[in-house]
Simulated scan of single mutants.
Amino acid sequence: MTSTHPQAGARESGEREEVRFASGDTECAAWHYPGTNGACVVMAGGFAVPKEPATDLFAKRFHDAGFSVLAFDYRGVGKSGGQPRLVLPVKKQLADWEAAIAFAAALPEVDPARIALWAFSMSGGHVIRVAARGPRVAAVIAQTPNVGGPAAVLSAAGHQKPLAMLRFTGRGTADAVGALLGRRPLLVPLAGEPGTVAMLTTPDVGDGPRALDPDGRHPEWRQMVAARSALRLLFYRPGRDTSRVRSPLLVLTCDEDRTAPPGPAVDAARRAPYAELVRMPGRHYAPFMEMHEQALDVELSFLRRHLLGHAGGGPGAAPAPPA
């Protein structure tokens, strides 16, 4: 059974409390922001990014608008349990989403029929797959999602040097073999300059620390990931699942994004039965930076329409009828 364990001293300014819920053989850590309107937004960070730098900026504003929020760390990331650290199999991350949704549905102030998912980058692809195959959710927001496909692979390859790409592949292969022998993970940086061995070397990936942690308040964020996990993502294509998403789906893309190129996400949105596509200027992290207010307005409008049933979104509003 999923359970909550508020941590001593973990309540912050009356807005949120730290809770934990079971996933697999361990527990995920999460921030719970109790809301007032009966609806809940479940959130997680991009690949290997803890919940605080990844979700704080949006979670606070959703909560200010009356929504409950459950923002969680994947197993092996942040304050969640799980060993080895920073080894992030997609299958387990999808299971963490399902566990988080079940936990959110049991929160005392939440209507289980009014739960939305929010994620960006690689996790923006995860929420599409979760909605396509798993529990019914009322709405899904995929912000600058990496939905896979040849365009994403070509973009990544086009901003890396051949020798570094070979070294990265070798490190990922060695890490995968080492895992079979019980060795510690071989880590690579999440971001780097072309020519370095890193998960991504696209022009906008370096904006991450400035967008997610501009004040350096999260020194515990290890901006690394196991090489085996990064290598496997080359073959991950959640965009193919959009035709099976029966919930309203908001896909927000940025036209100059080179980390998650907009083309595949636009195509994926067009295949979804109930998708809304919003295109904005800027690079991958623009919704956290210069386009933040615009992105927030779009997302709050979407949440109010599909979780509260009207544009105003005040407390006590009725849920929208099912699609």
Rank of each mutant, 00 (worst) to 15 (best):
residue 32 H to T: 02
residue 33 Y to G: 00
residue 34 P to K: 05
residue 34 P to W: 01
residue 35 G to Y: 01
residue 36 T to R: 15
residue 36 T to G: 10
residue 36 T to F: 04
residue 36 T to K: 12
residue 36 T to P: 03
residue 37 N to D: 15
residue 39 A to G: 07
residue 39 A to N: 04
residue 42 V to Q: 02
residue 43 M to L: 14
residue 44 A to E: 04
residue 44 A to V: 09
residue 45 G to T: 03
residue 45 G to W: 01
residue 46 G to L: 12
residue 46 G to P: 10
residue 48 A to H: 06
residue 48 A to W: 06
residue 49 V to F: 05
residue 50 P to Y: 09
residue 51 K to A: 05
residue 51 K to P: 00
residue 52 E to Q: 14
residue 52 E to F: 05
residue 54 A to F: 00
residue 54 A to D: 08
residue 55 T to P: 01
residue 55 T to W: 00
residue 56 D to S: 13
residue 57 L to P: 05
residue 57 L to W: 10
residue 59 A to P: 02
residue 59 A to C: 10
residue 59 A to Q: 07
residue 60 K to C: 01
residue 62 F to D: 01
residue 62 F to H: 04
residue 63 H to D: 07
residue 64 D to T: 02
residue 64 D to Y: 00
residue 64 D to R: 01
residue 65 A to V: 07
residue 66 G to M: 13
residue 66 G to D: 14
residue 66 G to Q: 13
residue 67 F to V: 06
residue 67 F to N: 04
residue 70 L to T: 00
residue 70 L to D: 02
residue 71 A to T: 05
residue 71 A to C: 15
residue 71 A to H: 08
residue 72 F to Y: 04
residue 73 D to G: 10
residue 74 Y to T: 02
residue 74 Y to F: 15
residue 75 R to N: 02
residue 75 R to S: 00
residue 76 G to V: 01
residue 76 G to Y: 02
residue 77 V to Y: 00
residue 80 S to V: 05
residue 81 G to F: 02
residue 81 G to K: 00
residue 83 Q to V: 13
residue 84 P to M: 12
residue 84 P to G: 10
residue 86 L to Y: 07
residue 86 L to V: 08
residue 86 L to M: 15
residue 86 L to C: 08
residue 87 V to C: 11
residue 87 V to T: 10
residue 88 L to Q: 06
residue 88 L to T: 03
residue 89 P to E: 13
residue 89 P to Y: 03
residue 90 V to F: 03
residue 91 K to T: 15
residue 91 K to M: 14
residue 92 K to T: 15
residue 93 Q to G: 05
residue 93 Q to Y: 01
residue 94 L to M: 13
residue 94 L to V: 11
residue 94 L to P: 05
residue 94 L to K: 09
residue 95 A to N: 09
residue 95 A to P: 01
residue 96 D to Y: 00
residue 97 W to N: 06
residue 97 W to F: 11
residue 99 A to Q: 04
residue 100 A to I: 14
residue 100 A to T: 12
residue 100 A to L: 14
residue 102 A to M: 09
residue 102 A to F: 03
residue 103 F to I: 05
residue 104 A to F: 01
residue 104 A to H: 00
residue 104 A to Y: 00
residue 105 A to S: 15
residue 106 A to H: 07
residue 107 L to Y: 02
residue 108 P to C: 14
residue 111 D to S: 12
residue 112 P to L: 15
residue 113 A to W: 03
residue 113 A to P: 02
residue 115 I to R: 04
residue 116 A to T: 05
residue 116 A to C: 12
residue 117 L to P: 06
residue 119 A to D: 02
residue 120 F to Q: 14
residue 121 S to D: 07
residue 122 M to P: 04
residue 124 G to R: 03
residue 125 G to H: 00
residue 126 H to L: 08
residue 127 V to H: 05
residue 127 V to F: 00
residue 128 I to P: 04
residue 130 V to L: 10
residue 130 V to W: 03
residue 130 V to I: 13
residue 130 V to H: 08
residue 132 A to H: 08
residue 132 A to M: 11
residue 133 R to T: 13
residue 134 G to N: 12
residue 134 G to D: 13
residue 135 P to T: 14
residue 135 P to R: 15
residue 136 R to I: 10
residue 136 R to E: 15
residue 137 V to K: 06
residue 137 V to T: 05
residue 140 V to A: 11
residue 141 I to K: 01
residue 143 Q to T: 01
residue 144 T to M: 12
residue 144 T to F: 06
residue 145 P to E: 13
residue 146 N to V: 09
residue 146 N to I: 04
residue 146 N to A: 15
residue 147 V to T: 06
residue 148 G to H: 01
residue 150 P to L: 14
residue 151 A to W: 08
residue 151 A to R: 13
residue 152 A to M: 08
residue 153 V to P: 04
